[in-house]
Computed example of a mutant assay.
Amino acid sequence: MGIKQQLGMGVTTAVLGLTLIGGGTFAYFSDSSVTNNTFAAGTLDLDAEPTTVIDVDNLKPGDSMIRDFELQNNGSLAIDTVTLDTDYNVIDVEGNNTEDFGDFIEVEFLYNANNLDEVIYQTTLSELEDMSPEAISQHIFYPELGDDGLPVGESHDLVVAFNFLGDVDADLNQFQGDSLELEWTFTATQMEGEQR
């Protein structure tokens, strides 16, 4: 490499060094601001009071029992729909049942305790167990809750009549001493999300 090239490289290096030093001392104005944001999810809390709707013994064909209970919205979000899932277990003490005890327990969902003849929906426990929760909601809860659902802090009274059907064509003696354990699971869904 010739002397001119070495001198040229030296000058270029010196100019580059001065540029970096000069650029390092040049500054812009700046400012910053911090925002604090929170996303807090609401709660969906459906309660049934009392938790034991019915507990009877010594039933006989033709008996009828009326019970009422409350569905309560104890959460911070409005409830849009309520569904019901039915599950029951028959305890056949003699082991002689040829029919389902649930076929002979009729369930009537009533509008209120003052007008017991106003039936919202009528079915048997066995049919209720086979229905989808959405179909049950449409038949039982929608007529009362409607499009408004169950607002926060409110409750809905549910009145139910249980009837031990006395079918004369059936051998009801097979159910003597038997019992039926019923479990109802109520499930709430939220209202649709909205622009906020």
Rank of each mutant, 00 (worst) to 15 (best):
M1R: 03
M1K: 07
I3D: 11
K4Q: 02
K4Y: 05
K4G: 10
G8K: 10
G8D: 10
M9I: 02
G10I: 12
T13V: 13
T13R: 08
A14F: 14
V15C: 11
L16M: 14
T19D: 01
T19W: 13
I21T: 10
G22S: 13
G22P: 00
G23R: 04
T25N: 06
T25A: 02
T25K: 08
F26A: 13
A27R: 01
S30H: 12
D31F: 07
D31Q: 03
S32H: 14
V34Q: 06
N36Q: 15
N36Y: 15
N36A: 15
A40F: 08
A41F: 03
G42N: 06
L44M: 10
D47H: 05
D47G: 09
D47C: 03
T52N: 03
V53Y: 01
V53W: 02
D57M: 07
D63M: 10
S64R: 13
M65F: 09
M65L: 09
I66D: 10
R67G: 04
R67W: 01
D68P: 00
D68V: 01
F69N: 02
E70T: 10
L71G: 14
Q72V: 15
N74H: 00
N74I: 03
N74E: 03
G75C: 03
A78R: 03
D80A: 07
D80Y: 08
T81V: 11
D85K: 15
D85W: 08
D87T: 14
N89S: 13
V93H: 10
E94T: 05
E94D: 12
T98H: 05
E99M: 04
F101I: 04
F104T: 07
E108H: 09
E108C: 11
N112W: 02
N112L: 03
N112C: 06
N114F: 14
L116N: 12
D117A: 15
V119W: 13
Y121R: 04
Q122W: 01
T123R: 11
L125I: 13
E127A: 15
L128D: 14
L128F: 12
M131N: 00
S132G: 02
S132F: 03
P133L: 04
E134G: 10
I136S: 12
S137D: 02
H139M: 00
F141T: 11
F141I: 09
L145A: 15
G146F: 09
D147G: 08
D147V: 14
D148Y: 12
G149V: 06
P151Y: 00
H156C: 00
H156V: 01
H156E: 05
L158R: 00
L158A: 02
V160K: 04
A161M: 10
F162E: 06
N163T: 12
N163C: 02
N163M: 12
G166D: 13
D167Y: 08
D171L: 11
D171K: 01
L172I: 06
Q176G: 05
G177M: 14
G177T: 11
D178S: 05
D178G: 09
L180F: 03
E181R: 01
T185I: 04
T185A: 04
A188L: 09
G193T: 11
G193N: 07
E194C: 00
E194K: 09
R196I: 08
